[in-house]
Simulated assay, not measured.
Amino acid sequence: MFTGIIEDLGIVTKLDRDQGNLHLTIKSAITQELKIDQSVAHNGICLTVVSINNDTYTVTAIKETIDKTNIGDLMVGDIVNLERAMKLGDRLDGHIVQGHVDQIGFCQSVKEENGSWSYTFDYDDTFGNVTIEKGSITVNGVSLTVVNSEKNKFSVAIIPYTYEHTNFKSLQKGSKINLEFDVLGKYIQKLYQNRL
């Protein structure tokens, strides 16, 4: 379980493909605090630490994860948003995030708005996922509030701190992003569909 509050930006230092798996080696300031078997969210994708070497650690993504997220598009030198799993008893500063990406989306536009930024994203709505205004959404692992919600797109507003401390500053029109929709909304949607 995660909160969507990014702890660090990691740098991809190595990518190894092994049959259907992708092994990613990440350099991060939090590496020394990690343990093997620990869960860490990478752009919102929960992955298990399998090895640690000095200031880098390695995680493995299986085919299912590669097929449903943007992790297969990463290249050496790319920056990823990192968050360790929340501790029981800690404050929930973002919202409940599972680290299970529902689907990918694409950045439609980025607009600077006098000290903040507005991002609009679209997604395939045939999966049944929805957003609501003032509801929660996770974009590349970042917990955000939906500003504008439409049938298959939504907008979020980014403050300077989030812009500087996440990989949002590298997003541009056409960028592929990981989306995790609000877990409570998903349950309500499922209950509603089952009643019909």
Rank of each mutant, 00 (worst) to 15 (best):
A85W: 03
A85F: 05
M86L: 13
M86N: 10
K87Q: 04
K87S: 05
K87A: 00
L88E: 03
L88T: 10
G89T: 08
D90N: 03
D90Y: 06
D90W: 01
R91T: 09
R91L: 11
R91F: 08
L92F: 01
L92V: 02
L92I: 10
D93A: 14
D93V: 08
G94C: 07
G94L: 07
G94H: 04
H95P: 12
H95M: 12
H95Q: 15
I96E: 04
I96Q: 12
V97I: 09
Q98A: 11
G99W: 00
G99E: 00
G99R: 02
H100S: 05
H100P: 00
H100L: 05
H100F: 04
D102E: 05
Q103W: 05
Q103N: 09
Q103R: 12
I104F: 11
I104P: 03
G105M: 01
G105Y: 01
G105L: 01
G105C: 04
F106N: 11
C107S: 04
Q108C: 14
Q108S: 11
Q108A: 09
S109C: 05
S109W: 00
S109D: 06
S109I: 03
S109F: 08
K111Q: 11
K111G: 01
E112C: 06
E112Y: 09
E112H: 13
E112L: 12
E113T: 14
E113I: 10
E113H: 14
E113L: 09
N114Q: 13
N114C: 10
N114M: 08
N114V: 07
G115Y: 01
G115N: 02
G115P: 02
S116Q: 12
S116R: 03
S116C: 11
S116P: 07
S116H: 10
W117R: 08
W117V: 12
W117D: 07
W117M: 06
S118M: 15
S118F: 04
S118Y: 08
Y119T: 10
Y119G: 06
Y119S: 09
T120Y: 12
T120R: 11
T120D: 13
F121M: 03
F121D: 01
D122R: 09
D122Q: 12
D122C: 11
Y123T: 00
Y123N: 00
D124Y: 01
D124E: 08
D125Q: 06
D125I: 01
D125P: 02
D125T: 08
T126H: 15
T126M: 14
T126E: 14
F127N: 15
F127I: 12
G128F: 11
G128H: 08
G128Q: 08
N129Q: 13
V130C: 05
V130D: 00
V130I: 08
I132D: 15
E133Q: 13
E133W: 09
K134W: 00
K134L: 02
S136Q: 03
S136C: 10
I137R: 03
I137V: 13
I137H: 03
I137F: 02
T138V: 10
T138P: 07
T138F: 05
G141A: 10
G141H: 07
G141V: 05
G141S: 12
G141Q: 06
G141T: 04
V142M: 14
V142T: 13
V142W: 10
S143F: 03
L144Q: 06
V146K: 15
V146Q: 15
V146E: 15
V147D: 13
V147S: 15
V147W: 06
N148R: 15
N148M: 12
S149K: 02
S149M: 04
E150D: 13
K151F: 04
K151E: 06
